[in-house]
Design a binder for these strands. Sequence first.
DNA 1: CAGATGACTCCCA
DNA 2: CTGGGAGCCATCT
Length: 129
Amino acid sequence: MTERTDDLYGRIYEAVQLVPQGKVATYGDIAAVVGNGCDARTVGYALNDLPKGQDAVVPWQRIINSSGGISTRGTRQRRLLEQEGIVFDARERIDLGTYRWEGPAAEWAEAHGFHTLRPRREETQLRLF
DNA sequence: CAGATGACTCCCA
DNA sequence: CTGGGAGCCATCT
């Protein structure tokens, strides 16, 4: 049996749990927070391997692709997100500029060995001038 | 170790 | 917009 002692998946699940309701994060965002050689693809792989019992505590549905769309099959993920107040546009995509998670608090990240997300000027720029 | 696979992402035509 | 291809990493054959 493939006993997974990999902290990697555990860390990924931990990072996913940081995403609050009503917000979303991309696979790449989670990978960046986890760091340590983690990759967007690895995040997707980990979530695909998420134990059934864990889906209750790990908000896997809040992880979407960099295009703002869902990568899972079916409509379950979309339905769950809409229940949280996430709005999909006509192209079935989520506005990352509005719903994208800003990352963990610097202190928390520091204490748990995670990384913070770098601000995305191009998407969240408010232009107060 | 090599090859295949996958809930990724970026680039180019 | 759609497709194809490269780069990426972890896991399984």
